[in-house]
Design a protein around this nucleic acid. Structure first.
Lengths: 191, 191
DNA sequence: GCTTGCCATTAACATTTGTTAATAAGCGGT
DNA sequence: ACCGCTTATTAACAAATGTTAATGGCAAGC
């Protein structure tokens, strides 16, 4: 499991074994079942997470009570950074397991300290931050300037297998359309 | 002008005079004319900015050649953080002056060093980061779950005076609609 | 004062997307 | 294997938004 974390990090920004050692010592492991909301909006959260197994999403609930998907998180990736998803250690988003999942976690405060002390870890974290922000801007552009059909095509390129693994309702709200529209577009794109 | 920068900072996250002194020493001042693109995508940029006067926008250009507005920046605020808008000191976005503008700037590398050395400045910067990210998520939610009319109403609440100061084309692309649709919604909301 | 160019509005029509409701299909638990 | 629940599809219609094109207003420069 620790090896998996190391691979995740090195895929994003390779760091030395010494630098990884400092992280490794702080790792904890957690599992959740499909459907579990493991981070709640307005609740305390003080962790950084590595996604080892399974699929999860971040989401919000709109005034109608519907879940609006913000992002998906696949295996072998970093869950949205603590600094991006919390304010004063209070979560701004919900996170839910869409399948059974395994996470590695690390105390965010301690991780921040590692960033300050160690330039490799700082560079790694900044790379993660960059990637996440670029992804957000890309999604923003998509929502602002593409048709729903084009957004679905982009989604398929970015998350090749997801469409067959998770409820379409989650995908539809991510794309900013209803699940009925998604169904129509799927049919349309079959030809 | 330096006093204005101090006020901007203190409105976001109050810092001591000593902490501000470290920033103050590094400030430079710049002015641009209405229509100037002062940061270009794929070009080098190594600065943090304070917006002292005037209005600007960040944008991208889509495959059709249209400018898509990402964000607006008002007087007495922080321009999008360097860490959010660049990768390896290369800008991911264009920035354009929508009126004549005055900016204060500071070298991003030096500012990052101040963040590492000084917890007040780090807290200030993290607050700015938080605010910007929350704003991005809010916009994302809006695009994904509100109608164009509702988005216009939200826009008017967030940027009260902007609608009468800048071209509607810029607002329309920010809202993810055509300027014709914007015109229709404006008429509709008059009743 | 006139012209030029840019931008906002309006109209007419086409297309996309939403809404409601009925049906079908898949899936988990017993 | 069956039942019951959730989710996906389809249809019919309504509403929202896009497209193209024509019109009008307004400000900058001559």
């Amino acid at each position: 499991m620790k090896e998996t974390v190391k691979n995740i990090i090195n895929t994003i920004y390779p760091i030395s074994n010494q630098a990884f050692g400092a992280i490794e010592k702080l790792l904890k492991f957690e599992t959740y079942s499909k459907g579990d909301t493991f981070i709640s909006r307005n609740k305390r959260n003080e962790k950084e997470y590595f996604a080892l197994k399974g699929i999860s999403k971040s989401y919000l609930i709109n005034p109608d009570g519907d879940e609006i998907t913000i992002s998906f998180f696949l295996e072998n990736s970093i869950l949205s950074l603590h600094s991006i998803r919390t304010s004063n250690n209070i979560s701004n988003l919900y996170f839910k397991a869409l399948t059974d999942i395994e996470l590695a976690s690390i105390n965010a405060k301690k991780f921040e300290q590692l960033m300050i002390e160690n330039i490799e870890i700082r560079n790694f974290a900044n790379t993660v931050l960059q990637n996440e922000l670029i992804s957000k801007v890309e999604k923003e552009i998509g929502l602002a300037s593409l048709s729903a059909k084009e957004r679905l095509i982009e989604f398929r390129n970015k998350y090749r297998l997801l469409e067959n693994l998770i409820p379409h309702t989650d995908i539809a709200s991510y794309l900013g359309i209803t699940n009925i529209s998604l169904s129509r577009l799927r049919k349309d794109l079959m030809n």
